[in-house]
Design a protein around this nucleic acid. Structure first.
Length: 492
DNA sequence: TGAAATGTTGGGGCG
DNA sequence: ACGCCCCAACATTTC
């Protein structure tokens, strides 16, 4: 044996940096780290101090706690260990690399502007220290570099983007979880998850979250199973019914990377093959996964997406500063039952049905003319699935200033939407107990209920339930007029 | 992934 | 029997 080999460490451990890929299954970075045959230091860094970071809100932090707890257990079950550290990611990883004599770092890329900058810094600092950096995908269906127009430019319209993804994609072949993730013999120090205080203590407002969700990879897999078994076949119609569990409810699991979109696609494809009547539902939900990709591609190519309108002319749109109505919207006290039910579902469970998200968002930016960024910020603070790319792209879509956006004059009628998608008022009654006694006919518009019926239902408008903070007709007319004036002024 | 206003058509009541 | 009107139902356009 050549002498030089004796000078090398007997083993050269590697680091797997978990970020938003809190799973073992179909995790290409982890699989590559394990495939080195070396011991793997699994690391998660709580880094919400980096510049430009949108620090996670309370609901997302609660979810993160439980997701990390499950990841740590899953790693223990296969011979591994998860090291938790807090601080600047680059500094922490460099420290851990020195402490473990690591020669390589594996990670899955992210798409937030600050995260991309962080990856560049990691690459620079660690390479200088003699640590090779290996960056993988796996978080999206397709990487931004792989999808572009014939001219080589990024897509700005969803449908051609979708077609290109479908056309250029091989059948998804998820990578199975490694059977063992061998930890180094000498352990390095880890923070205790409890000490991070990701969960609320006093007051403990997380009861609604606990009732609603099972964070973690096993919860994610169960969620997908339930969808495929129960909802997939009728997805196209029941997805719009907020009183029904008609959607996948995978958003937060996907956000934290507890399940990969390719794993979802593979499962959907298999299910559609074995159950032809479910094929159209499987395609429709797969399309939603591609919307998620679209948002991430947009953020990748337009890093200012969370702050600035994609269509720059909207910077001069005459938005209104209206703190009182913003607060009424946030607290579910607008006087429009579907809007209020949605905002209360959000507050209680950290999640809102997608159809209702569109209605409440339209109400904020059109009827109230409050800047979309205010809605984006509230969703960011309260959603368990708060995701920089999805949140920014979807708010801009509703506001009309985004890529492939709904035109500004497309105003949702919160009453019609309510009657159409919650005809029996089941969703309204679930979240607005004070309106429960109203009839199916009356519950969508309490302000128009005859006084005797109101009294019989125990309702005093302005006391037990708010008067509408604006009428639909006035809000709609004001928004359309402002839009027309602005366009005229803009055309000059 | 909209709604409202406006236009068109056709059936039925009715003088 | 006929023409007129009303209006629901559907289609188109406009915001």
């Amino acid at each position: 044996m050549p002498l030089v080999d004796l000078e090398r460490p007997i083993s050269s451990p590697v680091i797997m940096l978990f970020r938003r890929d809190l799973r073992l299954d179909d995790n290409p970075a982890l699989s590559a780290a394990v495939a080195t045959g070396q011991p793997v230091t699994c690391l998660f860094v709580l880094d919400d101090i980096a510049p430009g970071v949108w620090a996670p809100g309370g609901a997302a932090r609660w979810w993160l706690h439980h997701s990390l707890a499950e990841l740590a257990q899953a790693l223990r079950d296969c011979g591994g260990a998860l090291v938790l550290r807090r601080g600047n990611t680059t500094d922490v990883v460099a420290d851990v690399a020195r402490a473990t004599s690591a020669t390589a770092l594996y990670l899955a890329r992210r798409y937030e502007p600050w995260a991309a900058a962080q990856e560049a810094a990691l690459h620079q600092d660690l390479t200088a220290d003699g640590v090779s950096v290996h960056r993988y995908g796996g978080t999206l269906v397709a990487e931004p570099e792989a999808i572009h127009t014939a001219q080589g430019t990024p897509f700005k319209v969803f449908t051609p983007f979708y077609r290109t993804v479908v056309k250029s994609l091989p059948a998804p072949q998820p990578v199975a979880a490694p059977p063992r993730v061998p930890a180094p013999e000498s352990r390095i120090e880890s923070d205790a998850l409890e000490d991070w205080n990701l969960r609320p203590v006093a007051p403990d407002w997380a009861g609604g979250l606990r009732e609603s969700w099972t964070p973690g990879a096993s919860g994610a897999a169960a969620c997908l199973d339930t969808f495929v078994d129960d909802a997939m076949v009728t997805y196209e119609t029941t997805r719009d019914r907020p009183a029904i569990t008609g959607t996948s409810a995978l958003s937060a699991h996907l956000h934290f990377g507890e399940i990969s979109p390719r794993r979802c696609l593979a499962r959907l494809t298999f299910a559609a093959d074995s159950r032809p009547e479910g094929a159209s539902g499987a395609t429709a939900v797969a399309r939603q996964l591609v919307w998620r990709d679209f948002a991430h591609h947009l953020l990748h190519h337009w890093p200012s997406l969370p702050e600035s309108p994609f269509r720059p002319e909207y910077a001069s749109f005459p938005w209104r500063d209206d703190p009182a109505r913003l607060r009424a919207w946030q607290r579910g006290r607008t006087g429009f039952p579907l809007v209020d039910a949605g905002m209360r579902q959000l507050w209680h469970t950290g999640w809102m049905h997608n159809r209702v998200r569109m209605v409440v968002a339209s109400f904020l930016v059109k009827h109230l003319m409050i800047p979309w960024q205010a809605g984006e910020a509230w969703f960011w603070d309260t959603l368990v699935d708060a995701d920089l790319a999805n949140n920014a792209a979807n708010w801009q879509w509703v506001a009309g200033c985004g890529a492939d956006a709904a035109p500004y004059f497309r105003v949702f009628n919160p009453i019609l939407q309510s009657e159409k998608f919650d005809p029996q008022g089941a969703y309204l009654r679930r979240w607005l107990p004070e309106l429960r006694a109203l009839s199916d006919k009356h519950i969508h518009r309490p302000w128009a209920v005859p006084p005797l019926d109101l009294a019989a239902a125990g309702i005093t408008l302005g006391k037990t339930y708010p008067e509408p903070i604006i009428t639909h007709e006035a809000g709609r007319a004001r928004a359309l007029a402002a839009f027309q004036d602005w366009r005229k002024a803009n055309a000059r």
